[in-house]
Amino acid sequence: MSKALFMRNLRAHWRLVLIFTLVLAMYFLIILGMFDPLSPDIMGQLAAFKLSPALLAAFGFDTTTTELAGFLAGYFYGMLMIALPLVMLVMLGNKLVAQTVERGSLATVLAAPLTRLRVARTQALFLLCCALLPALLITALGLLGAGLLFPGQLDVPAFLRLNAATLCLHLFISGIAFVFSCLFSDTRWSQALGAGLPVFFLLAQMLAKSGSRVAWLRFLTPYTLFAPMDIVRGQPQALQALALLLGGLALYGLGLAVFNKKDLPL
């Protein structure tokens, strides 16, 4: 790990990370504020807006519980907590490796007496930190916010399980972005696959959840391994989270190996 390069990344990308985390935190607090333990019939309220249950399901609004952790799992972890970090991570993944190679700016670092692997590990570590950030931030914010606004109403172990699984999911998605960023020296390809694939996975999951005719799509997307309502209800989801975690780490490892071997046009 090179501290100089890590700090350079931080200076280049802190605005992007800050904006995404602020927007995420804002949405979280809005949704948390919407929780009304006395009026559990949220589904009925939404139906009043004439939204079809299939459309609601596609966007992850899955509400069959009146408990706070379940409420958050349905309204926040179904879409926002997936989509916002996804955009941030695929953007960063592309910028950290492929874009610096394509533009040639990484030459400054790679011409210095650092091994290539050390350079790649620094970029991996930076992306990894950014992948951990949303889940850690929302965990802290959730515990704090619920403690202040709705004391005693948050199922803390369920909420922690939920965030741990989210963390594994983000790690996996950032791994996809990282591996394609390492593979391609051309950002067109790095973006097409590093961002295109996660977005395709998300769309596939939305379609799979919205109707039974395309339910088979669930076998094509790793988002199937992340089922927030099941996690909160205490159904066994540890293996799925573990699969995402190990898969994510394997993708990072693959990215490092590829970068160490490839031709660099610098």
């Binding site: 700016s105 400054t108 007496p113 650092l114």
Partner: peptide
Amino acid sequence: QAARVHELLGYVPGEMAFFDGI
């Protein structure tokens, strides 16, 4: 042994490129 080689080297690339916003 690129890292050890680079200790000895000064390199000017064919096309100078710098980090964004530096």
